[in-house]
Design a protein around this nucleic acid. Structure first.
Lengths: 199, 199
DNA sequence: ACCTGAACACCGTTCAAGT
DNA sequence: ACCTGAACACCGTTCAAGT
């Protein structure tokens, strides 16, 4: 009567789907193998038929989280890059703790390579050499992931209520996260434009 | 005979020191309260007299890791900012998993505020308004933490041996992390210079 | 002031065995 | 092909009690 899955025999997609729901409803700390198994009416050990371990499951979730980041295509490479960055951020924010899931799996070398590729492609369209495109995409990706992670953590703590206000920082003077994000992306895009001006 | 602490009655500093040694010698996943207690010849519950929980202990370690990041002072604000960024990176890399400790505690709003302040101060010296200094410092901090975390994780996996090479990326064509880091910092500094040119 | 002892409520993972 | 049952080796944290 809980509305969760009921019948037996699950597929790998079922498991990933149930995991995404737990993630979005209760957050990453509550996404345990035991809890996921319970949601599927299955023993914890059953999950290891579908995924070799939790790390691999999280990497799969990271792929699914990043996948829907849409890509535009115009004559203005800088505008395209900004849109790509914004789409990636939106995808990360679409699931609770989505940014941290992607960041942590990327850190252990298992994450989705698509995000970096899309950013690098947008930069390459600006006529930059491959090394510049790769390195700038890496820098931008670090910023996007770090910023989105921080933003999502703030959302959690604000909802819990016990927000620890920084000294000298009143609760009302929090910067708008979206404006802060746009500033950072613009800063990096401007850096690229500057480096081209000098070349 | 292990060379670790032996007599009883520890201070908060003893606990933090032992924790830093476990962190540096065995990495963050092995830094458990039980293992830390064992290193101090103490029951796990004894640690909770010195720190209310593990999160607070990690925040204390983050402060100690970031603290030694030195600050120069010259007439060239951009050079100072680059030096500040490099000093922060060096401090993070000085301990195994140091970047992840700082990043994770910063994410939950407990981390060291010093790093951001030093970056923002260096930017302010360039004549930028406070909002710009804060937002640019935030962006730079996200990049530094993300990059250093990634770099340290790669070091672990390379030492374990089982490095999962990305498709189309041979083991020998890994970019030099220091060059990659410098590129990212320069990109953001250039972005600041560009925004000033337009003002 | 600093620690012990014992418990509570959990984890991820393995593996033989079942259907 | 997909899962059960039972175990192994752990976690962080609390709390009364000791010295």
């Amino acid at each position: 009567m809980t509305g969760t899955e009921s019948t037996r025999r699950h597929t790998r997609d079922d498991v990933a789907g149930a995991a995404l729901r737990i993630l979005d409803d209760y957050g990453l700390p509550d996404l345990t193998m035991r809890r996921l198994a319970a949601a599927l009416n299955v023993q914890p050990s059953a999950l290891y038929w579908h995924f070799p371990n939790k790390q691999t499951l999280l990497a799969d979730l990271a792929d699914r989280i990043v996948a829907p980041a849409a890509a535009p295509r115009s004559a203005d490479w800088a505008a395209d890059l900004r849109a790509e960055a914004a789409a990636l951020r939106d995808a990360l924010l679409a699931y609770r703790d989505g940014a941290e899931v992607v960041a942590s799996t990327l850190a252990i070398g298992m994450g989705p390579t698509i995000a970096h590729e899309r950013l690098a492609t947008a930069i390459s369209a600006g006529g930059f050499d491959d090394a510049t495109a790769r390195n700038a995409a890496t820098a931008l990706q670090h910023f996007i992931l770090g910023h989105a992670s921080h933003e999502q953590q703030r959302m959690q703590y604000d909802s819990i209520g016990v927000l620890a206000p920084r000294p000298g920082e009143s609760a009302s003077e929090h910067d708008d996260p979206t404006a802060e994000f746009t500033f950072g992306v613009d800063l990096i895009v401007a850096g690229l434009q500057f480096s081209r001006t000098r070349a």
